[in-house]
Amino acid sequence: MTRVLLFVLIGITVIIYLLLFAVSKVTLPAQSPPGIEQGIGEIQNLLGLPVALPFAFSRLLPGIGTLLAIILVASSMGNEYNWRTIRTMLICSEGRLRLLGAKLISAGIFILIGMVVGLATAFVMSLLTTAIGGYAFDFSFATGGYWWDQFLQFWRTFYVIMPYALLGFLFAIVGRSAMPGIALGAGVLFLESIITAIMYTAGGWIAQIPDYLLTANVSAIANVNKFLQDVGLGELGTTVGFGQLPGVPHAFITLAIYSLVFLIVAFYLFRKRDVTG
């Protein structure tokens, strides 16, 4: 499962880069509107080496990365129910909480490995498209400040993936199967962003509700990447195109509360419920 998910992440990253490269090489007709030319210029910027990691942090990992993390974490527990190995493992383990903790820690490690693999793939694809496109290899961006910023963004990205992954984990335990965890985790990931956008459009007090949901807070943290702001691609981190995102401290606290609640309920249910069938 983990290997399959890693291959999916690599495959999707490669496909996205190849599509972006193909679009960046489109020859525009002479009378094309200026906006299109500007858009293609931005895509060429995206393919460049300096933006490879920030792009992966801002787009790939919070999107497809989070989805794969939900699948991984929900499956880590849900498959134990599906294969009925939960009883075998519980009989052999020193306590339910230890088993659940071990599952969660190993899933967390796999998510971190997946993030590194995703970033490496994005960087390699950026190198390839730079070479194929005939652009200059310029590593002057790789200053200490740049790497520090990416290091912090790595952990911020991990932080924003966690509430969704823990939601999947919780519902895999509630539903005693991987499928409810994957379906609900993925459902919240995609539907909540649509609902958030609708709420922002509605305005008034309704527009304040997303401040306490996941999407807006995730976007607020994904937006922190300083490098993107510096190169004029700050909007890349914004997955909710309209509305005022909550502040970063607010986002950190809100996501921490969500993660903790999902975690505590998952542990409580797993400890208390009978394992039958």
Binding site: W83, R84, T85, I86, R87, T88, M89, I91, C92, S93, L99
Partner: peptide
């Protein structure tokens, strides 16, 4: 206590030996 409840349940993608090793580590 050792137990086999209803039909035995092990990880389908592991070998018999790897399954026992996984259990041995858990124990």
């Amino acid at each position: 206590v050792g137990a086999v409840i209803e039909e035995p349940a092990f990880y389908p993608y592991l070998s018999g030996r790897d399954n026992l090793e996984a259990l041995a580590r858990a124990i």
